[in-house]
């Protein structure tokens, strides 16, 4: 199948990207280093290790999605490998979807590896793992799927540097979308307020995917919530991929 052929190749190529291993190394360092912060907070060390490890999985996952994702389509055009691909009897959306799925598969592997390292480290330190920890990992992956879709969209329409800046800004702002609605009273009735509210509805609310605090403290999270958050991410992802396909449909390469 054409989509899978593209996805498989994208995966094979991304696995060879050196940036991936550099980031994984940093992620491992962050996970192991979290003990240092745990040590200064007496009696809380396992909690801190869990919290910071999950944060590391999220941040380094996002960095990989950004570095690899914003290059995905751009690189094919830049290196002209795209010529011999798009002249085949395939739809352009199949190419976009294939690229996306290839990176999504890679991120699944990377997230699983980072989470496994974190989990083993927690157990070695004498902590225990509960289901919330794994729910948190799943939601981090849900967030990565969304971020990757945005990165792929941008890689089809702009340069990797601009794409990376936009995706990273979205990641940062997406975790603090409430700032757009909780405005001080002097904004009431102004044009700025309406613009910021519009931004609130456009930017994905990434804090929906963040149950790190619950995971660190062992507070149970309802499976229904996890399902709802994943569905939220899926809808956003689908919309972004549709926009990417439409933008790419008539693009001159």
């Amino acid at each position: 199948m054409r989509v899978l052929a593209v996805a498989r190749n994208t995966f094979r190529e991304a696995v060879r990207d050196k940036v991936l291993y550099v980031l994984l190394l940093f992620a491992a360092a962050a996970i192991f280093g979290s003990k240092a912060l745990g040590w200064i907070s007496i009696g809380q060390d396992i909690k801190i290790v869990k919290d910071l490890s999950l944060a590391a999985v999220s941040v380094f996952g996002v960095l990989i999605a950004i570095f690899v994702g914003t290059n995905l389509v751009y690189k094919e055009i830049d290196k002209r490998t795209i010529y011999t691909i798009l002249c085949r009897p395939m739809h352009r959306w199949e190419f976009i979807l294939g690229k996306y799925l290839g990176l999504a598969a890679l991120l699944a592997l990377v997230t699983a590896v980072m989470a496994a390292v974190a989990a083993v480290y927690v157990v070695v330190l004498g902590g225990s793992l509960d289901v919330t920890f794994f729910q948190a990992v799943l939601l981090i992956y849900g967030q990565l799927l969304l971020i990757t879709a945005l990165a792929v969209l941008l890689s089809a329409v702009t340069s990797p540097i601009l794409g990376a800046i936009i995706v990273f800004s979205t990641y940062v702002v997406g975790h603090a979308t409430s700032i757009f609605t909780e405005l001080p009273p002097q904004f009431d009735g102004t044009f700025s307020k309406r613009v910021l509210e519009a931004v609130y509805y456009i930017i994905p609310n990434l804090s929906n995917f963040d149950i790190r605090a619950e995971a660190a403290n062992g507070v149970p999270v309802a499976p229904g919530y996890v399902l709802w958050a994943m569905a939220y991410g899926a809808v956003y992802t689908a919309v972004l991929l549709i926009i990417a396909s439409l933008a790419f449909q008539d693009k001159d390469v």
Binding site: R80, T81, Y83, M90
Partner: peptide, 15 residues
Amino acid sequence: TRKHIGYLPENPYFY
């Protein structure tokens, strides 16, 4: 239509 076409670009690039 593209089923009927075989294309060789100038300086072809592959993976």
